[in-house]
Amino acid sequence: MHKSRFWVVGGEYTSCDCETIVQGTERVVGPFENRMEAERTWRTLSEDHRPQAQVRFTIAQEPPMTLNA
């Protein structure tokens, strides 16, 4: 069986280019068993930080792995 997990990752960046994250602001939320759950959390975090232009979050997907039963 192939299974993949999803994570919401992000934080505050030093500029709107989102290349360098401000140390100590990193956030990793998850894992989520499906993308819909991850999107729900991503949407909430993004809305909560909307006024902060340098705060960004994204959804990361782990490569599928084979689970042995």
Score class of each variant (00 low, 15 high):
Trp7Leu: 15
Asp48Arg: 13
Met1His: 03
His49Val: 00
Ala38Gly: 11
Glu39Ala: 04
His2Met: 10
Arg56Thr: 04
Lys3Leu: 04
Thr25Gly: 07
Glu26Phe: 08
Thr66Ala: 09
Pro31Trp: 07
Gly30Phe: 01
Arg35Asn: 05
Val9Tyr: 01
Phe32His: 08
Thr44Ile: 14
Val28Glu: 06
Leu45Ser: 07
Ser15Lys: 03
Val22Ile: 13
Gly30Arg: 03
Val22Met: 10
Pro63Leu: 12
Ala60Val: 14
Glu39Gly: 01
Tyr13Glu: 08
Glu26Arg: 10
Ala69Gln: 08
Thr66Lys: 10
Glu39Thr: 08
Ser15Thr: 12
Met65Ser: 11
Val55Glu: 06
Thr66Met: 11
Gly11Ser: 00
Val29Tyr: 07
Val9Gly: 01
Thr14Trp: 10
Arg5Tyr: 11
Pro63His: 11
Trp7Asn: 09
Met65Thr: 12
Gln52Ala: 03
Thr58His: 04
Arg50Ser: 06
Thr20Lys: 13
Trp42Glu: 14
Asn34Ile: 06
Arg50Gly: 00
Glu33Ala: 12
Leu67Arg: 13
Phe6Trp: 15
Arg56Phe: 02
Glu62Asn: 15
Thr44Glu: 11
Ser15Glu: 03
Arg56Ser: 08
Ser4Pro: 02
Arg56Tyr: 01
Arg43Ser: 15
Trp42Pro: 03
Thr44Cys: 06
Thr44Ser: 13
Val8Tyr: 07
Met65Asn: 05
Thr58Gln: 06
Gln61Thr: 14
Ile21Glu: 08
Tyr13Phe: 15
Thr25Gln: 09
Thr25Asp: 09
Phe32Ile: 08
Gln61Val: 10
Pro31Cys: 06
Arg5Lys: 13
Asp17Cys: 01
Thr41Phe: 02
Lys3Tyr: 05
Asn68Pro: 02
Thr20Pro: 00
Val9Trp: 03
Arg50Cys: 01
Glu12Thr: 10
Ile21Asp: 05
His49Ile: 02
Val28Met: 04
Gln52Val: 08
Val55Gln: 06
Glu33Pro: 00
Gly10His: 05
Glu62Ala: 15
Pro51Tyr: 02
Thr58Tyr: 00
Arg35Glu: 14
Phe57Trp: 03
Glu33Ile: 07
Ile59Asp: 02
Glu47Tyr: 04
Ser4Gln: 15
Asn68Asp: 12
Pro31Gly: 03
Pro31Val: 10
Ala53Asp: 06
Trp42Gly: 01
Asp17Glu: 13
Glu33Phe: 12
Thr41Cys: 12
Arg56Asp: 00
Thr20Ile: 13
Phe6Asp: 12
Glu37Cys: 07
Glu62Cys: 13
Cys16Glu: 13
Pro51Asp: 04
Phe57Ser: 06
Ala38Trp: 09
Gln54Trp: 02
Ser46His: 03
Glu39His: 09
Trp7Arg: 14
Asn68Trp: 08
Val22Leu: 14
Arg40Thr: 11
Gly11His: 01
Gly11Lys: 00
Asn34Ser: 09
Pro51Gly: 04
Arg35Ser: 00
Gln61Met: 14
Arg43Glu: 15
Glu26Gly: 14
Met36His: 08
Pro31Ser: 13
Asp17Asn: 14
His2Gln: 11
Gly11Pro: 04
Val8Phe: 06
His49Lys: 07
Phe57Thr: 02
Phe32Gln: 09
Gln23His: 01
His2Ser: 10
Gln61Glu: 15
Ala53Met: 09
Phe57Asp: 00
Glu12Lys: 15
Phe6Lys: 08
Ala69Arg: 04
Arg27Ile: 13
Thr20Phe: 12
Pro31Tyr: 05
Val22Arg: 13
Gly24Gln: 07
Cys18Thr: 06
Gly30Ile: 11
Gly24Tyr: 12
Leu67Phe: 11
